[in-house]
Nucleic acid binder design. Structure first.
Lengths: 147, 147
DNA sequence: ATATCAGGTGGGAAAAAGTGGGAAATAATA
DNA sequence: TATTATTTCCCACTTTTTCCCACCTGATAT
């Protein structure tokens, strides 16, 4: 399971080293896609297959309008990139994905169960701040939904 | 069962030794997460699996499509860390978790049934003070609820 | 009182992780 | 094809982490 928060550098060659704790689970190749809430998602190949299957499944339970779904899939698939992890555990973050979330200098690398998220470090700090304030509230809400 | 209260030091290398009485039950690897009321939780791997399973959406590979799940999962997993317990029973408390609860110098380590809690020792002292005064009151309230 | 033991603390050396940069290989352009 | 730009690979440096050993303190036993 991918968990934890790490702050790493993105250098001028767009290289970013992955936390050692993630490397075993990620293997030697990953899929980087635009994520939601202004971050990037990194999936293992296996996880990506699961995700993409469910996204393209025509009779899945996703309550998407067809048009919405098409455009969402373009967003996810059209800009997904598979990247090799180099011999010392770094990935190359494509320029257009970097730009998309305003990455430069420092990145926050977050393990979220089955995926890794990459954030502009400042954006992450802000997001965390807000999330924390809402956390109790949220936990309670989720708790109630289960009833 | 994990019970009791201990005051231990956190040194400059972020090491904190776990009470001997806890070590057997905790095993050689634990999960540290932010807890509620401004403390940290330490779970055994087994306990963590139970907790995280219950809290995450187990019946969907696409939980990231829901905004509130995303926030919650980021909070839950992004800020948890698995740490090895070293040969003499110490854990490394990640800097970002230390910061979160204002840990430095002395920590209060509390056994709470299935989990261990870590507090800033002064915060714990205050909390205890208040809690103690309310304990009788609280006990009665809890007793009544069960009826 | 001294010795012994267990739990907890601290520090130095070795190893690992993360970062940066140059050279070789490849691709792009004219 | 020659030249330039980009990407890839490899090595080296720096910082952080890990490992190991020694010390301290308080409790118990001799």
């Amino acid at each position: 399971m991918l968990i934890g928060e790490y702050i790493h550098t993105i250098d001028e060659k767009n290289r970013m080293s992955l936390p050692v704790k993630f490397r075993k689970e990620l293997g030697k190749k990953v899929i980087i896609t635009p994520g939601l809430d202004n971050c990037l998602f990194i999936f293992t190949v296996k996880e990506w297959e699961k995700v993409s299957k469910r996204l393209s499944d025509s009779d899945s339970d996703l309550s998407f309008l067809k048009a919405d779904k098409r455009s969402f899939n373009r967003f996810m698939f059209g800009r997904a990139t598979d990247v090799e992890i180099d011999s010392i555990g770094r990935v190359l973050v494509p320029e257009f994905l970097k730009e998309r979330i305003g990455l430069k200098g420092k990145a926050a690398i977050i393990g979220v169960q089955d995926r890794v998220e990459v954030w502009n470090d400042e954006a992450w700090a802000k997001y965390k701040d807000v999330a924390e304030k809402q956390a109790d509230e949220l936990a309670e809400k989720l708790g109630n939904e289960k009833k």
